[in-house]
Every structure is written in C-alpha cells, then in structure tokens.
Amino acid sequence: WIARINAAVRAYGLNYSTFINGLKKAGIELDRKILADMAVRDPQAFEQVVNKVKEALQV
C-alpha cells in the first residue's frame, strides 16, 4: 500500500511521509489500504484528497 500511495502522490509533487503528515494536519482519517485503492480506482477523488493535504501543508 505504501508503494502505491508513494507513486501516486509523487505525481502531485509530494512524497509519502509528507502526504501522511498532511493527512493528519488536514484531519483526514482514511487508512492506507483505502488510500491505495482510491489512487488506482478513483483518481479524481484521490486528487481531491491530495489537494486538501496540500492546503493543510500550505504547499
């Protein structure tokens, strides 16, 4: 799951650890299995999560 998430978030200019930190700051409580599945099956929803994380990180 970690490898999938890392590959997906790198397309948005983040790395895995920064993304996970941003999830916590944004108050998003999705587990890694769901995030990895979302990255593959629903990229639009995953992009929305990434955008919320970037807002929380102020990137």
Score class of each variant (00 low, 15 high):
Ala36Gln: 02
Lys25Val: 10
Pro43Val: 07
Leu23Glu: 01
Ala36His: 08
Lys24Leu: 13
Glu55Arg: 10
Ala3Pro: 05
Arg41Ala: 13
Val9Gly: 01
Ile28Ser: 04
Glu29Arg: 14
Phe19Ala: 01
Lys24Phe: 12
Arg32Trp: 12
Asp37Glu: 11
Ala8Lys: 04
Ala11Tyr: 06
Ala26Val: 09
Asn51Gly: 10
Ser17Ala: 08
Lys24Cys: 10
Lys52Thr: 09
Val40Cys: 15
Leu30Met: 14
Gln58Thr: 09
Ser17Thr: 06
Ala45Gly: 13
Arg32Met: 15
Ile20Thr: 09
Leu14Ser: 01
Lys33Glu: 15
Lys25Leu: 10
Arg32Leu: 15
Asp31Ala: 13
Lys24Ser: 09
Glu29Phe: 15
Met38His: 02
Asp31Thr: 14
Lys54Arg: 11
Asn15Ile: 10
Glu29Ser: 12
Arg32Ser: 13
Asn51Phe: 15
Tyr12Lys: 03
Ala26His: 02
Ala3Thr: 05
Leu30Gln: 11
Val50Cys: 06
Pro43Phe: 06
Glu47Leu: 12
Asn21Gln: 15
Leu30Pro: 10
Gln48Glu: 08
Ile2Glu: 09
Tyr16Asp: 02
Ser17Phe: 14
Arg4Ile: 15
Glu47His: 06
Asp42Phe: 08
Met38Ile: 09
Arg10His: 09
Val49His: 04
Val59Tyr: 13
Ile28Thr: 03
Val49Ser: 01
Ile34Cys: 12
Glu55Ser: 12
Gln58Glu: 11
Asp31Ile: 08
Thr18Gly: 07
Lys54His: 06
Gln48Phe: 13
Leu35Cys: 03
Tyr12Phe: 12
Ala36Val: 09
Val9Asn: 00
Arg10Phe: 10
Lys33Tyr: 12
Ala36Ser: 06
Leu30Asn: 06
Ala8Asn: 02
Tyr12His: 05
Gln44Pro: 12
Val53Ile: 05
Asn21Tyr: 12
Ile20Val: 08
Ala11Thr: 11
Ala3Trp: 04
Gln44Glu: 08
Ile20Ala: 11
Gln44Ser: 09
Asn21Met: 13
Tyr16Cys: 04
Gln44His: 12
Arg32Asp: 15
Gly22Asp: 01
Gly13Arg: 04
Thr18Trp: 04
Phe46His: 00
Asp31Met: 10
Gly13Glu: 04
Val50Leu: 03
Ala26Arg: 03
Ile28Met: 10
Gln58Cys: 08
Gly27Val: 05
Asp37Leu: 08
Asn51Ala: 09
Val50Asn: 00
Ala7Cys: 08
Leu35Glu: 00
